[in-house]
């Protein structure tokens, strides 16, 4: 009953694996399937203090993780682990996790229900909406809905941004623009470099308003 019996399936799987970005294939290590209960226990012990018991952090500079995509969560945890994403707080946290821990925790958070965000500056929402849905073609800013979806839900390696803390979002946009968050793909750095500071602040408010 080996894989030998399914040569065509194997072919398809191989093709699928080959066409995935390197980020994903490096995940395919020695881990078993995800264990959500174990993920919940681990997260409850190590992460809940900052990210909230169900991943809905209450502190504006600590990102919400509830409803975030597994692919994205794993990529970020690995990036912290390999010091590709700089953070004095998160690097040691990520370094302490095994591959199986990360998988279990990511699947736990992905299943939690995201709480609605808090808009601090509603007067910026109109500009924010325009940037999010139209971009700014003068500076070559693509609209954000292209990758993060109209409702901010994202998918796979494109993170969910809906209902996230606006303070965190703005900080990340500034870090992309200044090259401090330089790991991974170049697309978000390019997007953030092309945004004006006013647009970045406004679009962060708008993303927080999405559900």
């Amino acid at each position: 009953m080996g894989l030998r019996h399914y040569p065509s399936m194997l072919g398809v799987t191989l093709l699928a694996v080959l066409s995935l970005p390197a980020v994903l294939t490096s995940e395919a290590g020695s881990t078993a399937g995800p264990d959500i209960a174990r993920g919940q226990a681990l997260a409850g012990g190590e992460c809940a203090g900052c990210h909230g018991a169900d991943g809905n952090s209450e502190i504006p500079t600590f990102p919400k993780l509830a409803g975030q995509h597994v692919v994205y969560l794993l990529k970020e945890l690995n990036d912290y682990n390999q010091a590709h994403r700089a953070s004095d707080i998160m690097q040691p946290m990520a370094a302490s996790l095994s591959e199986q821990d990360k998988l279990d925790i990511a699947h736990f958070y992905a299943r939690q229900k995201p709480a609605p965000g808090t808009v601090a500056k509603p007067e910026l929402l109109a500009l924010g909406k325009q940037v999010y849905l139209e971009g700014n073609s003068k500076n070559g800013v693509p609209s954000c809905d292209g990758c993060h979806d109209e409702d901010g839900a994202g998918s796979g390696k494109f993170p969910r941004v809906a209902g996230q803390h606006p303070e965190y979002l703005l900080e990340e946009l500034q870090r992309y623009a200044s090259g401090k968050r330089s790991h991974g793909t170049r697309v978000m750095r390019t997007v953030a470099e092309r945004l004006t500071p006013e647009e970045a602040e406004a679009v962060s408010q708008y993303m927080a308003s999405l559900e």
Partner: peptide, 17 residues
């Protein structure tokens, strides 16, 4: 998905841009 932010979901692009 990567391209939709400029070329739009239906591929129609953007005339003014």
């Amino acid at each position: 998905r990567l391209c939709r932010g400029c070329h739009k979901a239906d591929g129609s692009g953007k005339a003014e841009a």
